[in-house]
Design a protein around this nucleic acid. Structure first.
Length: 564
RNA sequence: CGGGGUGUAGCUCAGUUUGGCAGAGCGCUUGGUUUGGGACCAAGAGGCCGGCAGUUCAAAUCUGCCCACCCCGACCA
C-alpha cells in the first residue's frame, strides 16, 4: 500500500473526545472514524488489523474443535419472546418493524438462533459434541457507549456455542475453550486473568471472564496474591470474621441524632462490625429490607440474583416513610410485612447494635434467631480490597479491568426453553448441555493498543500489524532514489512481505514520526545517504538503534527481524 | 434515566463575561526555497458559529426549547 494513496490520514493531535490511550491512537493513526456514539467505521489500516485479530481467533477456535458458521443479524422477535429474553434485554434490544408490520430484532447475541439451527441439524448423541461459532456484528442499544472501542452499540463478537450429550463433555469443552482463550490473548499480547464471574441474565451455572487489568477498565476484580483466587467484584466471596460471644440481654438505648452507622458507632463506642445496617430496596416494585453488618456494603448483583429481580433500586426516602420504616433507626426486630434478606455474616455475629424502629433509639445485643429471623439468609456482601480470600484467607488486592471474553456453562437453560433435545444411547430424548463463549473483537483491539504502545505511538504485535514493513523513501526529488525504493517495494511484495510504502513528498521528520505512530514492526529507509553505501536502513519498532543492510540482503534481514 | 461538560474551518482552540466585519495554530491548495526526526517564505481555498424559535437597529455572543458528542453514576448475555 502506497501511503500517498491511503484513504486515511494521521493526526498530530487527538480529537478532544478521546481520553483513553487506545481511543487516541485509533484516531491519530487513522484506524477508525466515529459515525455516532458507539458506532465506528474502519479505515484501511484499522480494517486490516481487525481482520488479523479475527484470524488469530479463527485459528484458535478451529484448533479447539470449532466450526465457523454465519448466522443472521436480523431475527424474528418471536424467537426472543420464546426464550423470554425480549423482556430480559429490555431497551438494550434494537427492534425494527418490516413492511408487513412484523417486529424483528437486531441480534445482540445468538443463543436463540443457534439453538434453532441445532434442532434441525442434530437428532442423535452420535452427532455430539458440536461447536459452531461465528464472528458476527452484534447490536445492543447500550445506555452509555464509551471509551472508543471499549463499549459499542454495534460491535463484532466471536461467539461459539458448545452442545454436549453430558456434563462431562461440557466440562471438557469449557476447559478447551479456556485454553484457546488464553492462547488468543497471549498471541495478541494482551495479558489477562481468568476470574469467576456473574452470569447475569444469560443464566446457567459457572462462568468466567477473561480480564485485562487496566486503570481505564470499567470492572473491578479481586485477586488473592497468595492462592490465585480471582473474581469479579460482582461475584467475589470472602471470609467473615466470626466472633465467639455469648448472647447478652437485648436492651434499648437512647441515641439522639445518631442515624448513620458511623454516628451510631461513635456515639455508643462500638466498632462498625458490631452494628447491623438496614438498607431498603425496591425489587420489581416490592419492598425489601436488607440487613447487613455495619462494616460491609451490599453487593447489588448478588442481591438481584437472590431475589430474581429484573429491576432493583434503592427505595426513595418517601417510600421508606410510607412503609412506616424509620430511616436511620430501622430494625429487623419486630418487622412485619416486608421481605427480609440478611447477609450470612449476620447469624454469625452476636450482640449487634440495630435500630429500634424509633427515632433517636437503637437496640443493643440483637441476636439473629433469638430476636428476629430473615426470610432469606445468603451472601449478599460486596468484597473490598483487604478482605480475606475465601480459600486461603489472604488479603485481597483490587484492580480495574476490562472484560475481554466471557465463557459460560449454560447447561440446559436454553435447551429446555427452546426444545434443543437429542436421542441418547438409551433411546431417551434429552436436552443438550450447552456452553457459550464470547470475545469482543474490537474491545480486544482496544486492549492491544492500551497494552502495546510507547510515547511515540503504536507498537504492533507481529501477528496483528496491518503491514510487516513500513518502507520510507527520503529524497523523493531524486528519481534514482525513488526508483530504488519502488524496486524494493516490489521485491518485498513479490516475496510475500506486506509493506506500507511511504512514497509521499514529506520531510524525513514527518515520515519517521508517522512510522512510529503507525507502529509496523520493521521500518526500512531508502535514502541517498544509504544508497551511497549500497544499503538500506533497517530499524525495529521496539529498538532505538538502526542497522545498515546491503541492498541485496534486505529480504533476508527483514524476515529475520520479523522472526520468521 | 440522574449529575457534569462541550458544540465556532478537516484537527486543536480563541472570540461569548460587556451584542457591532468570523479569528489563530496545525492541516489543505499553488509557487519557490529546503530535505535524516512533525522545515521556511509567499499567495490562496475553506464557516448555516449544532438546530429551531424569540429579544434587538444589530446575535457566535442574550433568552427559551430541542439535538449531538464526551465524562461520572445508574445500566451493561
Amino acid at each position: 500500500m502506497r501511503m500517498s494513496r491511503l484513504f486515511a490520514k494521521t493526526l498530530r493531535q487527538a480529537p478532544s473526545e478521546a481520553d483513553t490511550i487506545s481511543h487516541q491512537l485509533l484516531l491519530r493513526a487513522g484506524l477508525v472514524q466515529q459515525l455516532a456514539a458507539g458506532i465506528y467505521s474502519y479505515l484501511p489500516l484499522g480494517w486490516r488489523v481487525l481482520r488479523k485479530v479475527e484470524d488469530v481467533i479463527r485459528q484458535e477456535m478451529d484448533e479447539a474443535g470449532g466450526q465457523e458458521i454465519q448466522m443472521p443479524a436480523i431475527q424474528p422477535i418471536e424467537l426472543w419472546e420464546a426464550s423470554g429474553r425480549r423482556e430480559a434485554f429490555g431497551e438494550n434490544l434494537f427492534v425494527l418493524t418490516d413492511r408487513r408490520d412484523r417486529e424483528l430484532a437486531l441480534g445482540p447475541t445468538h443463543e436463540e438462533v443457534v439453538v434453532d439451527i441445532f434442532k434441525r441439524q442434530v437428532q442423535s448423541y452420535r452427532d455430539l459434541p458440536v461447536l459452531p461459532y461465528q464472528i458476527q456484528t452484534k447490536f445492543r442499544d447500550e445506555a452509555r457507549p464509551r471509551g472508543g472501542l471499549i463499549r459499542l452499540r454495534q460491535f463484532v463478537m466471536k461467539d461459539l456455542y458448545s452442545f454436549d450429550a453430558d456434563w462431562d463433555g461440557l466440562d471438557t469443552n469449557y476447559d478447551r475453550m479456556a485454553m484457546a482463550y488464553k492462547n488468543i490473548f497471549d498471541r495478541c499480547r494482551v495479558p489477562t486473568v481468568m476470574v469467576l464471574a456473574d452470569s447475569g441474565a444469560i443464566g446457567g451455572r459457572d462462568c468466567h471472564e477473561f480480564m485485562f487489568l487496566t486503570e481505564v477498565g470499567e470492572d473491578e476484580v479481586l485477586i488473592c496474591p497468595n492462592c490465585g483466587y480471582a473474581a469479579n467484584a460482582e461475584k467475589a466471596a470472602f471470609l467473615r470474621k466470626a466472633a465467639a460471644e455469648e448472647p447478652l440481654v437485648m436492651e434499648e438505648v437512647s441515641t439522639p441524632g445518631a442515624k448513620t452507622i458511623e454516628e451510631v458507632s461513635r456515639f455508643l463506642g462500638v466498632p462498625r462490625e458490631k452494628t447491623l445496617k438496614a438498607v431498603f430496596y425496591a425489587s420489581d416494585g416490592q419492598p425489601v429490607f436488607v440487613a447487613i453488618r455495619g462494616d460491609m456494603d451490599v453487593n447489588e448483583t448478588k442481591l438481584r440474583n437472590t431475589l430474581g429481580s429484573h429491576e432493583l433500586r434503592l427505595m426513595e426516602q418517601a417510600e421508606v416513610q410510607q412503609r412506616g420504616l424509620v430511616a436511620g433507626s430501622a430494625s429487623p426486630v419486630g418487622l412485619k410485612g416486608v421481605t427480609v434478606v440478611a447477609d450470612d455474616a449476620i447469624p454469625a455475629s452476636p450482640n449487634l447494635v440495630a435500630g429500634a424502629n424509633t427515632s433517636d433509639a437503637h437496640l443493643r445485643n440483637v441476636n439473629y434467631g433469638r430476636d428476629w429471623q430473615a426470610d432469606i439468609v445468603t451472601d449478599i456482601a460486596l468484597a473490598h480490597e483487604g478482605d480475606p480470600c475465601p480459600t486461603c484467607g489472604t488479603a485481597f488486592k483490587t484492580r480495574r479491568s476490562i472484560e475481554m471474553g466471557h465463557i459460560f456453562k449454560l447447561g440446559t437453560v436454553y435447551s429446555d426453553k427452546l426444545g434443543a433435545t437429542f436421542l441418547d444411547g438409551d433411546g431417551q430424548a434429552k436436552p443438550a448441555i450447552m456452553g457459550c463463549y464470547g470475545i469482543g473483537v474490537e474491545r480486544l483491539l482496544a486492549a492491544v493498543l492500551e497494552q502495546n504502545h510507547d510515547d511515540r505511538g503504536i507498537v504492533w504485535p507481529r501477528e496483528l500489524a496491518p503491514f510487516d514493513v513500513h518502507l520510507v523513501v527520503l529524497g523523493t526529488d531524486r528519481p534514482e532514489v525513488v526508483a530504488s525504493a519502488d524496486a524494493l517495494y516490489d521485491e518485498l511484495r513479490a516475496v510475500g512481505v506486506e509493506a506500507l510504502y511511504d512514497d509521499r513528498e514529506e520531510s524525513a521528520g514527518v515520515k519517521f514520526n508517522d512510522a512510529d505512530l503507525l507502529g509496523m514492526p520493521v521500518r526500512l529507509t531508502v535514502s541517498p545517504r544509504n544508497l551511497e553505501k549500497n544499503s538500506v536502513e533497517l530499524k525495529r519498532r521496539t529498538e532505538e538503534q538502526s542497522t545498515l543492510v546491503p541492498k541485496d540482503q534486505v529480504v533476508t534481514a527483514v524476515r529475520q527481524a520479523l522472526g520468521d
